[in-house]
Amino acid sequence: MILIGEKINGSIPAVAEAIARRDGEFIKNRARMQAEANATFIDCCASVPEAEEVETLHWMIDCIQDVTDLPISVDSPSAAVLAEAYRFCRKPGLFNSVSGEGSKLDTIFPIMAQEANQEWQVIALLSDDTGIPKCAADRLRVFDKIMKKAEEYQIAPGRIHIDPLVEMLCTSEDGIATNIEVIRTVRERYPEIHITAAVSNISFNLPARKLINQGFLVLAMNAGLDSGILDPTNRDLLGLVYATEALLGMDDYCMEYIGAYRDGLIGPVR
């Protein structure tokens, strides 16, 4: 599974404080921890006013790149900010994110189409100018729009991570049925595409959140999720990823699961 480490995000109070103080060691430590936990990408989100965002992301990206060569997920709700901040990365990473809203696709996809940026990937949210669609059929209509635009710019499906938009379970009318239907349909239509989710969104405002997160992760992976925005240092959650891949027949002879246990990534703390 593709693990997008979520621990460097200015919406987290401790990270916001470190950003305000320009505490580079704090950012570096979080990057180091996630790299050691086998993250695939290190997400980098400033969560500051847009006027300060490019400069702040530049500083944060430099901090991360000082301690790891893992690719960076450059995270901003602004396509204009992404179009500037990605240049600070020393290697191809992940645009996080675009959607069917406004001109976001036409801002980021042309950048990805450039010869120098052929290895860049993108997270695409299934929302548009109307907001987050309530039903699976409407989210899939946004998906079709995104894929039509990707074809126009010759962006291969394997470079796209579709985010079906996980909402709070406690306020959802149909539980996770919409998400599961979207994940399964996207996977059936495009076997080579990636499907991602911010796993912890499902459990907001609920007690014992980790139980909901773990249950959702198993269901979503069974439906076709192969990418996740999560905390790779959470041994229980990471162990569940390896275990589920083994149970789904995605890990020949359970070698990845055994290796993760042997390397101390999962299982009891040694």
Rank of each mutant, 00 (worst) to 15 (best):
Y153G: 01
N201F: 06
I229A: 10
G158D: 15
H194V: 03
K210E: 12
I146F: 09
G267N: 02
Y153V: 09
T233G: 03
G259S: 15
S200W: 00
L206D: 07
G158Q: 13
A150K: 04
E173S: 14
A197K: 00
A243W: 03
S227C: 14
N179F: 00
E151F: 07
T171Q: 08
C254Y: 10
I162F: 07
M221E: 03
V186L: 00
L230R: 12
E245C: 09
A246M: 05
N234S: 14
G249N: 11
Y257M: 02
M147V: 04
P157M: 04
G249P: 15
A220H: 09
E167P: 08
G215T: 15
L211T: 09
Y242Q: 01
P164E: 06
G224T: 01
E256A: 11
M255F: 08
D144A: 11
D231T: 08
P157H: 08
A260E: 01
L165F: 14
L237K: 00
K145D: 11
K149S: 07
E256N: 15
I180V: 15
G249K: 07
I229P: 10
G228V: 13
I180G: 06
L169K: 01
G259M: 02
D236G: 07
A246D: 00
I193D: 02
L230Q: 03
A220K: 02
Y261G: 05
A223N: 09
M255N: 07
V166K: 00
G264N: 11
E152V: 05
L240M: 14
F143A: 00
Y190S: 11
C170T: 14
S172Q: 12
L217R: 01
P232T: 12
S172I: 12
D251A: 06
I266H: 11
R209P: 00
C170V: 13
C170N: 15
T196W: 03
I193G: 01
V182R: 02
T233A: 13
